[in-house]
Structures are given as structure tokens and as C-alpha cells.
């Protein structure tokens, strides 16, 4: 956790954090709908469908972490930034990166899942 003094020296700009969160939410919303299309075409029912959604949205978060957040943290620590505190520098906390999009995307997932399941299977 950052101390108050370190936060003053290298501040975290709230607008940027909000922008990050918004981008992540948009990504999760969009991919959730696409996962619904996938689950519907595969014809998954009940638990497998929800597990499919869970696995793939966690995978999305993991890809964001691996390709965007992690390199930035490494770059920051190489260039001598002392306040390299991990995910807290980019989001409101690590929970937001991993589970933030799960519930927002769920309704979109259910909609497209039902639609494509109905179109393909029923």
C-alpha cells in the first residue's frame, strides 16, 4: 500500500483511473455479448454455459493484465519509479480488474446466449 507522502510525490490521477475502468467495462460488456454468441452456438445448457462465461471473462481479464498492466509495472520499476505498487496504480484495486466486469456483462451474456441458443438449437 502506498503511503500518503508517496502518493503526493507521484500522484495517481483520478481521471486516468476512471478512464481505465471505463475502458475495461466496455471491453467486458462487448466480450460478454460475444461469449454469449459462442455459448449459444455451442449449445451449452445451464451450468456449462455459466462456467464458459466465467472462464472466458477471467481469461479476458488475464489477457488485459498480461499485455497491458504487467508490462507497464515492469517498465515503471525499471525506470526507477519507487511507487510501483502493482494494479493499484491503474485501477481502484485488483478486485476491479478481475471481477469488475463479471456482473455487468452477465445480462448481455444471457441475452445473446438465449438468442443464439434459440436460433441454432430450438
Amino acid at each position: 500500500m502506498l503511503t500518503e507522502r508517496e502518493l503526493q510525490i507521484s500522484p495517481i490521477v483520478l481521471e486516468s483511473v476512471q478512464h481505465n475502468t471505463k475502458t475495461l467495462t466496455t471491453l467486458h460488456n462487448l466480450t460478454a455479448s460475444l461469449f454469449g454468441v459462442g455459448a449459444g452456438i455451442l449449445g451449452l445448457e445451464s451450468y456449462p454455459g455459466f462456467i464458459f462465461y466465467l472462464v472466458f471473462s477471467l481469461l479476458t481479464s488475464a489477457l488485459v493484465y498480461a499485455f497491458r498492466v504487467r508490462p507497464a509495472i515492469i517498465k515503471n520499476s525499471i525506470s526507477g519509479g519507487k511507487a510501483g505498487a502493482g494494479i493499484e496504480r491503474y485501477f481502484m484495486g485488483s478486485m476491479e480488474l478481475w471481477t469488475g466486469g463479471l456482473f455487468e456483462g452477465l445480462s448481455g451474456f444471457v441475452l445473446t446466449w438465449t438468442l443464439f441458443y434459440g436460433l441454432v438449437r430450438a
Partner: peptide, 25 residues
């Protein structure tokens, strides 16, 4: 099994992401 009104209700909740995509967040 769902009737057409239920599909309407599902649309209300689920179209959020479509609007996000079409009109900005």
C-alpha cells in the same frame, strides 16, 4: 419457455452492452 413479453424484459436488461458499443459509454 419464454413468451414475447419476457423477451422484451430480457432485452431491456441485456442491450446495455449493445448501446455501449453503438453510442459510446
Amino acid at each position: 419457455w419464454m413468451s414475447s413479453i419476457s423477451w422484451y424484459v430480457l432485452c431491456i436488461f441485456g442491450l446495455q452492452s449493445v448501446f455501449n458499443y453503438l453510442l459510446g459509454s
